[in-house]
């Protein structure tokens, strides 16, 4: 059963992400990316990382893809993208070789030394409990730093995307607002 689930999920994920990368239409690629994220959370559930799977569903599919979907309202995204692409074969070989090199570089030390387990899951605790215990003891400082990073990113996103937000729209009268719009559109 686990074997069947793994092969089903992995083949679907690879196919969906291939559609994401090679599709000419941004809407198709965004939709297939979201579907691939959902299936990746299925892989996490198979691996016993329940909390990570739920976080993947909420953050990636719920927040990141929704953010992309709203961001696409600013772009003219429905049309087909015209691109001048590099020769596909060269790019494919270069990409594959670079990925292989990165995998070898990062896998070699752990294969040579054998990685010791620093934080084995506690006996009798299910996955969210064990994750919480490690996250709020050993990884408390990175957790807080990540919280500050998310705050900074939120402020940066608001400031970058919302120019002209210094004028409060609710305090302007409707006629004045329409006049201003007409002026802007010239």
């Amino acid at each position: 059963m686990e074997t069947f689930a793994f092969y089903f999920l992995s083949i679907s994920i690879v196919a969906l992400f291939a559609v994401t990368v090679w599709s000419r239409n941004i809407l198709y690629s965004m939709t297939s990316l979201a579907a691939g994220m959902v299936l990746i959370s299925g892989l996490f559930f198979i691996l016993g990382a329940d909390f990570l799977g739920v976080v993947q569903l909420i953050v990636y599919v719920g927040a990141v893809m929704a953010l992309y979907a709203f961001g696409m309202m600013f772009f003219d995204a429905t049309g087909v993208v015209k691109e001048k692409n590099a020769p596909a074969m060269t790019v494919f070989i270069l990409g594959g070789l670079t990925a292989l090199m990165l995998v070898v570089i990062f896998a070699a030390p752990s294969i040579a030394n054998g990685a010791p387990a620093f934080y084995p899951p506690m006996a009798g605790a299910n996955n969210p409990q064990a994750v919480g215990l490690v996250l709020f003891t050993k990884y408390l400082v990175p957790f807080e730093v990540a919280a500050i990073m998310l705050l900074v990113a939120m402020v940066a996103g608001i400031i970058l995307a919302g120019k002209k937000m210094d004028r409060s729209l609710s305090k302007i009268k409707d006629a004045e607002l329409e006049g201003g719009e007409a002026k802007d559109s010239k």
């Binding site: 990636y60 953010l67 992309y68 961001g71 990113a153 996103g157 995307a161």
Partner: peptide
């Protein structure tokens, strides 16, 4: 990191 990257990058 991915969430904050998307927020800043999309802006």
């Amino acid at each position: 990191v991915a969430a904050s990257e998307v927020a800043v990058g999309l802006g």
